[in-house]
Simulated assay, not measured.
Amino acid sequence: MSYRFLIADDHPLFRAALRQALSAVASDAGIEEAESLSKAKSALLASADFDLVLLDLGLPDSEGFTGLMALRHQHPSVGVAIVSAQEDVVVMRQAIALGAVAYIPKSEPLPSIVEAIRTALNGHTWLPQSAKELSGNPAEAQLAERIASLSPQQYRVLCMVADGKLNKQIAAELEIQETTIKQHVSAILRKLGLINRTQAGVLLRSLQQGGRLQS
């Protein structure tokens, strides 16, 4: 079986290290690279036939979990493994709760990175030992499930709401009726268990900054 991988990282040396790890997993793997979130999205739009995306949290055009959340909503069938210099165990577990199949600190040795990739390809989640030892937060996991329940269009609307755009502006940008936007906003608030759009904006900005989920 020939695997296809997408490396989304803006550091050439680390992309080379990930190529080495991927080649150790499958010597005949097809590997593409992107140095930004926008280029990663373009690669996935051109062909979503990737087995795994290795996504850096610190891409120049992404903030916090923005990239992870966008890729998971736009391409739910493609696995996303986070690779990051950030080693906060709460952030690691939060990434898994938001749909990542693995969280790989950049400080991990090559054998561990290979192990993480193989684990993800086998359908299991992978975390470094330090994160496994931290008990999970049920409220975080529950809210992550609610976010995952949003449709791609609802997620786009949520992002625009967080940017402070009015329903009329969102409707014009998405080229749909304002009444449809109102329906989306109502559905978003219901799914997330929130009262108003201000709370929705605060929640998304918190996630984008990589902070703790707030229930």
Rank of each mutant, 00 (worst) to 15 (best):
S149H: 09
S130G: 08
M1K: 14
Q208N: 08
R19H: 11
R156V: 11
D9R: 00
T119C: 15
F50A: 03
S84M: 01
R15C: 11
T180C: 11
L71Q: 02
S149G: 10
E33G: 10
G79Y: 04
V101L: 04
S36E: 02
P111S: 09
E63Y: 11
L37S: 05
L13Y: 12
T179E: 12
I176L: 14
D56E: 07
E178L: 09
K132S: 09
L121Y: 08
T125M: 08
M160N: 04
A171H: 04
V161Q: 05
Q129Y: 13
R197F: 00
Q74I: 10
A70H: 13
S151P: 05
A162M: 01
N167K: 05
L98D: 12
Q86G: 05
K106V: 09
A16E: 14
L143V: 07
L192D: 00
I188K: 00
G193I: 07
Q142C: 15
L110D: 02
R4V: 14
M1V: 07
L18K: 00
S36Q: 04
I176W: 07
P60V: 06
E35M: 04
L55W: 12
P109Y: 06
A139N: 11
A24R: 11
L121C: 08
P60F: 10
P152G: 09
L55Y: 13
I181T: 07
S23C: 14
T180A: 13
A144P: 07
A40Q: 04
A120L: 00
I117L: 05
A97E: 12
Q199W: 02
G99H: 11
E35G: 07
I113A: 08
S206V: 11
G64T: 09
P109H: 08
E115T: 09
V90P: 01
Q74P: 06
S206R: 15
V53S: 02
A141I: 08
I96T: 01
R156C: 11
D10I: 04
A24Q: 15
K106Y: 11
R197C: 00
E175G: 12
